[in-house]
């Protein structure tokens, strides 16, 4: 793929992805053919800030976990009143990183 397109894509989506994975993603994207470019352009990522706000407001309901795709953990969090309240507090700290990790995994899966 064209280096300019790749850099533009990474610049536009850097806040959704894990920083340390950027070189690997860039390398992989550069090795891909142009046909994948259209598919990547329409890829949707979860915004870590939005997920944090959802987590702050609806923590014990586990909506944050359901949105990022952790359905099993979401059910567990919902059934336990947010892990007796502790899981909710931990997620307030961790959820932005988890969202970036999930976004990166989603992108990586489409690149391989």
């Amino acid at each position: 793929m064209d280096a300019q397109n790749v850099d533009m894509f990474l610049f536009a989506n850097s806040k959704y992805l894990e920083d340390y994975q950027m070189p690997v993603i860039r390398e992989r994207m550069l090795a891909m053919d142009e046909g994948h470019w259209r598919m990547l352009q329409y890829m949707q990522f979860n915004d870590p800030v939005i997920i944090l706000i959802i987590s702050l407001i609806t923590g014990p309901l586990a909506i944050d976990r359901f949105i990022i795709g952790d359905v099993g953990l979401g059910v567990a969090k919902l059934l336990t009143c947010g892990g007796l309240g502790i899981w909710v507090l931990v997620d307030w700290i961790m959820i932005m990183g988890i969202t970036r990790r999930k976004n990166t995994e989603k992108l990586m899966m489409s690149l391989y």
Binding site: P60, L61, L78, L79, C81, G82, G85, V88
Partner: peptide, 18 residues
């Protein structure tokens, strides 16, 4: 009262009472 919804909003969450 470990449920944050019950603690702050004074309404039970879907799992309260389990």
């Amino acid at each position: 009262d470990v449920c944050l919804i019950h603690h702050f909003a004074h309404i039970p969450c879907p799992a309260c009472g389990s």
